[in-house]
Simulated scan of single mutants.
Amino acid sequence: MNNPKKQPIFTLPPPKKPSTGTIKLQKAEKITPENPPIPHFPPVTTPLPSAEGIPISPPPPSLPEIPSDIDDEDSQESQTEIDNPLILNFTHQIIAPLNAVIGTIDNVIDGTIKEEKRQQKLKTVRAQLAMTIELVRNLAYLSQLTTQSGRESLRARLGIATIPLVAMHAVQFFQEPAEKRGVRISITDSTTQYKVRGHKDLLQQVFMNLLENALKYCDPDTEITIEIKPQKTTGNLIIDVINTGIGFNKEEISNIFKRGTRGKEAVKIKSSGSGIGLYICKNILKVAFNAKIEAIYATKLRQVTFRIRFPEYTIDKESTEKWRYEKDTR
Rank of each mutant, 00 (worst) to 15 (best):
N2R: 14
N2H: 13
P4K: 10
I9W: 10
T11S: 14
S19E: 13
G21C: 06
L25N: 13
Q26L: 12
K30F: 08
I31A: 08
I38F: 07
P39I: 07
P42S: 11
P42R: 09
T45N: 05
T46A: 11
L48P: 00
P49V: 07
S50D: 09
A51M: 03
A51E: 06
A51F: 03
I54C: 06
P60C: 08
L63T: 13
P64R: 08
D69N: 10
I70P: 00
S75T: 11
Q76Y: 12
T80Y: 03
P85C: 06
L86M: 12
T91S: 13
H92Q: 15
Q93V: 04
I94G: 01
I95G: 01
A100C: 09
I102P: 00
T104C: 07
D106C: 11
N107I: 00
K114L: 12
R118P: 02
K121N: 08
L122T: 05
L129H: 02
A130Y: 06
A130V: 10
T132A: 11
L135H: 02
L135F: 04
L142W: 01
S143R: 15
Q144M: 14
T147P: 02
Q148F: 10
S149K: 15
A156V: 09
P164V: 05
V166G: 02
V166R: 03
A170Q: 03
F174L: 09
Q175W: 05
I187V: 15
T188P: 08
T188N: 14
S190I: 10
S190V: 10
T192N: 05
K195W: 06
V196R: 01
R197D: 08
R197H: 14
H199M: 10
L202I: 04
Q204D: 07
N209K: 06
L210T: 05
L211D: 01
E212A: 13
L215D: 04
C218I: 09
T222R: 09
S254Y: 06
R259H: 05
G260I: 01
G263R: 01
K264P: 02
K268H: 06
I269K: 15
K270P: 00
S271K: 13
S272H: 09
G277F: 01
L278T: 00
L278H: 00
Y279D: 01
I280H: 00
F289M: 05
A298N: 15
V304T: 08
F306L: 11
P311C: 10
I315L: 09
I315P: 05
K317T: 13
T320S: 10
